[in-house]
Write a protein that binds this DNA or RNA. Structure first.
Lengths: 195, 195
DNA sequence: ACAGATAATGAACAGTGTTCATTTTAATGA
DNA sequence: TCATTAAAATGAACACTGTTCATTATCTGT
C-alpha cells in the first residue's frame, strides 16, 4: 500500500503514542515491543519507524507523555490544597508512581543521554520540576532564585530515591512500611534547616 | 561434546560471572547479551543456561557481585577514616557509582521482584545496608535498633536519589554542579534533626 | 488524464533468549 | 581392563526483537 488517508501525520503520531503508552503500562520497558504497538494500531513496523525514527524515539515520546500526565496529577492535587502543600506534593508524587508503576519506572530505566532529548520534550518534562521549585519557594516564603532551585531539585532527588525503593518493592522487603512518611520527614527536615 | 574437565561447576560459574560482569561494564544492561558472554568464555549458550537458569539469573548474580564490590569499596574507604565518617561514606558511595556507571545502573534497571532473589544473594546485598546502618548509629551515638535502621535506610534512599540523577546526567543537564554536595547536605540536616 | 511526490509496506537481515534431544565425555563398577 | 552409567556440553530449532530500504500503492497538483 502507500499513502493512506486514514490518518494524517499528526493523528498517526498521536495514535501510535497512545497505543505505545498503553503497552508500556501493561508490559514495562523490558517487554515493550514496537512491533506490538504497530500491530495494535493496524500499521506495520515500517510506519512506526517512519514516524518515530526508532524504538528509542518512541519510548522517549512515551516517557515525555508520562511526565506530562504526572505534572497534571500534581497540579490537580495542589489546586485544592489550602495548607501543607508540601505534604500534598509528596503524596501526589508517590501516588502517581504507585498508580502507574511500569510507566513511571520506564522513565528511569530508559537511560539515554539528556542532550538526546529534543528541546520541546525537555520543556514538557521540565514542567514537573517547575511545579516543585514553585512550591518549595512558597514553603520558604522566598522568590524562586537559583539557590531555591538547587534546593528544590535536591528535594526532588530525595523523594525520588524513596519512591524508587518503594516502587521496586525493595524497601518493603526490608520490613519497612512507611516509605512515603520517611520521604516527607526528610523533606521537612531540610526545609526547616533552610528557613 | 559432553562433560569437559576444563572447569568444574564452580569454576565455570565464576568464569561466566566474571565475563558477564565485564560485559555489563562495557555495554550496560540494555545491550547485555548472554550469547556474547558464552562466546567470550568459549562455551555455548546452552551451558550458560545450564549454570544460571536464564539471563535474569545471570544478571542477578552479576548485580549481587556488584553489590559486594561496592560494599568492599565503602569498607576500604572507611577503614582509614578518623573523623566525619559520614562524609567519607557518601563520597565513597558516589565514587563507586561514578567509577562503575553501567554496572551500578544495571542494579536498578534490572527490575525483579525482591522475593525472587535467593537468600544467599540477599545476604550479600544486605552487607551494604549493614555498613550504613552501623555508621549512622555511630554518628548518632546510638546502638543500631529498628528506629536507627529505618532512618539509615531513608538516608540511603536520599543519597541514592541524588546519585541516580548524577549518573544519568540529568542533574548536570539542569545546570547543577555539586550533586554530591547536595546529598551530603541533606544527610547532615537529617542527622542533625535526629540528634 | 497524467505525472510526480509521498507514505505505507513488508521482506530481509542480524541479532536476542529459551528449549531440549543428542552427543560426548568422565566416573563408576564388575 | 572394559562395559556401563551418569552427567555435562552442545547446537539446531523456534519465536521473537529492531532496523533498513526497495517496492508499491495512493494522493495531489497540473
Amino acid at each position: 500500500m502507500g499513502r493512506r488517508s486514514d490518518h494524517s501525520r499528526v493523528e498517526l503520531h498521536a495514535l501510535i503514542l497512545a497505543a505505545g503508552a498503553a503497552l508500556m503500562a501493561e508490559t514495562g520497558l523490558s517487554d515493550f515491543s514496537a512491533r506490538e504497538v504497530a500491530k495494535r494500531v493496524g500499521y506495520t513496523i515500517g510506519t512506526v519507524h517512519n514516524v518515530f525514527g526508532n524504538v528509542d524515539g518512541l519510548v522517549m515520546a512515551i516517557n515525555t507523555a508520562t511526565f506530562a500526565l504526572w505534572a497534571d496529577a500534581l497540579e490537580a492535587r495542589l489546586a485544592g490544597a489550602e495548607q501543607d502543600r508540601i505534604a500534598v506534593l509528596v503524596d501526589a508524587y508517590f501516588a502517581f508512581a504507585r498508580d502507574n508503576p511500569l510507566r513511571w519506572s520506564a522513565i528511569y530505566e530508559h537511560r539515554i543521554a539528556p542532550d538526546a532529548i529534543p528541546e520541546a520534550q525537555g520543556a514538557v518534562r521540565g514542567r514537573l520540576t517547575g511545579i516543585i521549585v514553585r512550591e518549595v519557594a512558597a514553603a520558604l516564603d522566598r522568590t524562586p532564585d537559583a539557590a531555591v532551585g538547587t534546593l528544590a531539585r535536591s528535594l526532588v532527588a530525595t523523594v525520588h530515591g524513596h519512591c524508587a525503593f518503594a516502587v521496586s518493592g525493595s524497601w518493603e522487603a526490608m520490613g519497612e512500611r512507611d516509605v512515603e512518611g520517611a520521604a516527607l520527614a526528610r523533606v521537612r527536615e531540610s526545609l526547616a534547616a533552610a528557613r
